[in-house]
Computed example of a mutant assay.
Amino acid sequence: MVEAITIANVEILVEKDPDAAIALFWKAINEGDRVDSALKDMAVVMKQQDRTEEAIEAIKSCRGRCSEQAQESLDNILIDLYKKCGRLEEQIELFKQKLWTIYHGEAFNGKPTKTARSHGKKFQVTIKQEISRILGNLGWAYMQRGNYMAAEVVYRKAQIIDPDANKACNLCHCLIKQTRTTEARSILSTILQGDMVGSNDPKSKAQAQELLIELESSHVSPLSAQESASSVEEALVQGLDHLMKQWTPFRSKRLPVFEEISPFRDQVAC
């Protein structure tokens, strides 16, 4: 049965017999038949079947057979798989690799924008938006690991490039965890006053209100940016600035957007 089914009607097989669909995908990959789509679709089906670890290993072992155009999609699938099974370290490393790719102008095929799809609709994504999105995800991964100093560094970088209320709320969460209530309160006030991109989004506003309640009910002593600067600088070793140092030999190749990111030490007091 599997041999008689083609990739064109595999969606029917996925619904009726996922295991048979996975066998078909493996057959296509091994025979070199539409490897890009076969590997990506197989990983998605494996995830749906709670075979996450198997999907990760399949991508790692077979992505070398895929085209360059498929690599970004495979990275995005890997990130989702890592999230599902709680592999934070792999998530963080992959986010850093994606930033490295953008930094060297290797993303978007060297163009300033790319076409993306969501719910069947096409839209344009700029390099700035992509960097900010990846930094937001990287910051979230650091938060899940409990490294709030590193997360703060990353969220501040994201806000410099493409500020929005959602990432600002996450930045406030990091500050509250470090008992830096004065800074957190200032940012939350900006969000609740509607003076930030995305401030009117109900979800972001509700999150800001919850954080403010948490802040007001806490009994921690407020710390200023200057008082906590030395602690924040410790995060630079593990945060984005450490990654920047790895890029230093290639600065002549980096995209103009990175020139807009001033050193974090100059912004600790902002």
Rank of each mutant, 00 (worst) to 15 (best):
G120I: 11
G120K: 10
K122Y: 15
V125M: 14
T126I: 00
K128R: 13
Q129E: 11
Q129C: 01
Q129W: 08
S132G: 07
R133F: 02
I134V: 15
L135A: 06
L135K: 11
L135D: 00
L135R: 14
L135T: 04
G136T: 02
N137F: 04
N137S: 06
N137C: 07
N137V: 00
A141C: 13
R145C: 10
A150K: 13
A150L: 02
A151P: 02
E152C: 05
V153D: 12
V153I: 06
V153N: 14
Y155W: 10
K157Q: 11
K157G: 04
K157A: 04
A158S: 14
A158W: 10
A158C: 03
D162E: 13
P163H: 10
P163K: 14
P163N: 07
D164S: 12
K167Q: 11
K167L: 04
K167W: 02
C169Y: 04
N170T: 01
N170A: 05
L171D: 00
H173E: 15
H173F: 13
H173Y: 14
C174Y: 05
C174T: 06
L175T: 00
I176G: 02
I176E: 00
I176N: 00
T179N: 15
R180P: 03
T181L: 15
T181A: 13
T181D: 10
E183D: 08
A184F: 03
R185D: 05
I187V: 06
I187C: 05
L188T: 03
L188G: 05
S189V: 06
S189Q: 15
L192F: 11
L192I: 07
D195G: 04
G198P: 02
G198E: 05
G198H: 10
S199E: 01
S199Y: 01
N200C: 07
D201M: 05
D201C: 08
D201I: 03
D201A: 06
S204R: 01
S204H: 12
K205V: 00
A206Q: 07
A206Y: 09
Q207I: 00
A208V: 04
E210D: 07
I213F: 04
E214R: 15
E214T: 07
L215T: 01
E216R: 14
S217Y: 08
S217L: 14
S218I: 01
S218H: 08
H219P: 00
V220F: 09
S221T: 09
L223C: 02
A225V: 00
E227N: 10
S228V: 09
S230V: 03
V232L: 13
V232C: 15
V232F: 14
E233Y: 09
E233Q: 13
A235T: 02
L236K: 10
V237I: 15
L240V: 06
D241E: 15
L243K: 10
K245I: 01
T248Y: 14
T248W: 09
F250S: 14
F250H: 13
R251Y: 07
R251M: 09
E259R: 07
P263Y: 05
P263M: 05
F264I: 00
Q267C: 12
V268L: 13
